[in-house]
């Protein structure tokens, strides 16, 4: 397992996530799309990192590959000590269940379940007992400020509230890493920054690592690290406000 890379010099913690030489090539008949090219990336425990870049630059593809939803064409991915490219389908599914949290752009929730039940669902699948999952679900819904609307179904929640339920669901399951693909894309800027503030706060309070993609400037400003993709390549990787971050870690 690889540890530190040059960017995080001075830190001795083991990396939570390491990508080495990751390529993703989509074939559509004769046509080949190189969605990702030779991606090397290391993310430490507790980071709050943004993945930015224009549409089509490969953000979704990268997040899907890190999340074990899609397989790379080449390269290796180590996540929390597991080489996920070697896992079988069913193992990957269980890996996602216990180690990862997901927040998508929209339609994150099961429509027939209330906010509370949606948050509980992943914990049900994890096999946690009724009491524990109920307590945790309520706790995390309070943390995202939704204690008053827990019994509502998604259709009765605003877009911003739905995204917050998704964040609560991701965190309540106790993941090592939360992946959020454009979580604010469908929100107005006020709701977008509010969601990011919640994610940022919880990332610190829960010591949970976040990687989220965005192309919204105001959202990017909340990040402690900005990884920029262009045409499937990482063209820049900057740590911002490193001081405060290192104090936390």
């Amino acid at each position: 397992m690889t540890t530190i890379d040059n960017d995080s010099a001075g830190k001795t913690a083991m990396a939570l996530l390491t990508l080495q030489g990751v390529d993703k090539i989509y074939r559509q008949g004769e046509l080949e799309v190189r969605a990702l090219q030779e991606i090397d990336l290391t993310v430490q425990e507790g980071e709050f990192a943004a993945l930015v870049g224009p549409s089509g630059s490969g953000k979704t593809t990268l997040l899907n590959i890190i999340g074990g939803l899609d397989a790379p064409s080449h390269g290796s991915i180590q996540l929390n000590g597991t080489s996920i490219t070697t896992l079988k389908e069913a193992e990957l599914s269980d890996f996602r269940l216990f180690q990862l949290g997901f927040v998508f752009q929209a339609y994150n929730l099961v429509p027939v379940l209330s906010a509370l039940e949606n948050v509980e669902l992943v914990m049900v699948l994890q096999g946690r007992d009724v009491r524990e999952r109920r307590e945790r679900a309520e706790h995390y819904l309070e943390l995202v400020g939704l204690e008053k609307v827990m019994q509502r179904r998604p259709a009765a929640l605003s877009g911003g509230q739905q995204q917050r339920v998704a964040v609560a669901r991701a965190l309540a399951a106790g993941p090592r890493l939360v992946l959020a693909d454009e979580p604010t894309a469908n929100l107005d800027s006020e709701n977008a920054t509010a969601l990011l503030d919640i994610m940022h706060r919880l990332s610190h309070e829960e010591k949970t690592t976040f990687i989220f993609s965005t192309h919204d400037r105001r959202v990017m400003e909340r990040a402690e690290r900005i990884i920029t993709l262009r045409d499937g390549k990482i063209v820049s990787d900057k740590h911002i406000g490193q001081e405060s971050h290192e104090q936390m870690a």
Partner: peptide, 13 residues
């Protein structure tokens, strides 16, 4: 889409 979501969250096939 919903099934895709559930599968992403980790429900088994």
């Amino acid at each position: 889409r919903e099934f895709g979501l559930l599968r992403a969250l980790g429900i088994s096939r």
